[in-house]
């Protein structure tokens, strides 16, 4: 009996090659570099370096400033993710109910999506400018002694506000299409089964949006971790006293401003591990619950 043999040809490899090359060049190679660098200690002028094992890790991660940044990052990410999801969901639910002028309303809400984070940061800067900033004046006028240059709470407020504002529109688009994907008859069935609209929302609409919410949660946490860099860099720059420094911003600060390549690389590696762990947790434990 003859067994069927498939001819092996090089063509399939050719097709996946671009993808593989991109992953190697833009991800694996830099990651390997970072891991390598994280074990080296350079002298102040970058002329020579020495293999120091985990000294860079000990020095940076156990430092007070890193722990502060880690704490802020966790709080900041939680706030940005929660607030931008909650706000976007509220807006999407309301927009979904609008019948007249619906498209104008929706387009307006989507606009912020087109704005890059650094630009959002610059706009925020203008609004919180002590001399000409409308929001700055407004907050002070309503009796809040607001000064984000000096007060760390106020500074945190600024970066959270701008980051949330920037992200709401993306979440809004996804939530809106998620809402429109819920079959009308299912909602009608619930209308006959339950008279409280709030209860219907939490027992029918919200669970049916769970896949969207989960997806957005992953996206938003990643956003809060990495992409808000541009906002922080153009507004507070981590000030006052490192109160609004996120881990990513600290990598940049220590590496480029402080020229501590080894320490900065060590931080990057830790960040990579954290994100990896977070992703695994999300997909392992949460995703299992959201699919029906």
């Amino acid at each position: 009996m003859k067994r069927v043999q498939f001819e092996h040809s090089a063509i399939p490899y050719l097709f996946v090659a671009p993808q593989i090359i991109i992953i190697v060049v833009f991800f694996l190679w830099p990651a390997a570099q970072a891991i390598y660098q994280s074990f080296l200690l350079e002298d102040a002028f970058g002329l020579s370096s020495q293999f120091v094992w985990f000294r860079n890790y000990e020095d940076t991660i156990l430092s007070e400033s890193w722990l502060q940044a880690a704490g802020f990052t966790v709080l900041f990410s939680a706030l940005v993710t929660f607030l931008s999801l909650a706000l976007a969901l509220l807006l999407a639910v309301k927009a979904n109910e609008v019948i007249r002028g619906a498209s104008t309303y929706k387009t307006t809400l989507m606009w912020a999506y087109a704005i890059a984070p650094p630009v959002a940061g610059l706009m925020g800067n203008l609004m919180f400018n002590p001399l000409i900033g409308d929001l700055y004046k407004f907050l002070n006028a309503i009796g809040w002694d607001f000064n984000h240059k000096l007060d760390s709470f106020d500074a945190g407020f600024v970066v959270v506000l701008i980051s949330v504002w920037k992200q709401v529109s993306v979440n809004f688009i996804f939530f809106l299409s998620g809402l429109q994907g819920i079959p009308k008859s299912v909602l009608e069935a619930s209308l006959m089964d339950c008279k409280s609209s709030l209860r219907r929302f939490w027992t029918i609409t919200f669970p049916l949006l769970a896949p969207t919410t989960f997806f957005l949660m992953v996206i938003n946490i990643t956003y809060a971790f990495f992409e808000t860099f541009g906002i922080i860099d153009t507004t507070t720059r981590g000030a006052p006293g490192g109160a609004t420094t996120t881990l990513v911003f600290k990598v940049f600060q220590d590496g480029f401003r402080g020229a501590d390549i080894g320490g900065s690389s060590a931080q990057s590696v830790v960040l990579m591990i954290m994100v990896l762990a977070l992703t695994v947790v999300q997909f392992r434990f949460i995703e299992r619950k959201v699919h029906y």
């Binding site: 079959p183 008859s185 299912v186 009608e188 069935a189 619930s190 006959m192 029918i204 049916l208």
Partner: peptide
């Protein structure tokens, strides 16, 4: 009167079961 308070029940063409 709202649908839930009419004391009527409906069967839909596409069943309209709560998928979750």
């Amino acid at each position: 009167v709202s649908p839930a308070e009419r004391d009527v029940a409906m069967v839909f063409q596409n069943y309209a079961l709560y998928p979750h």
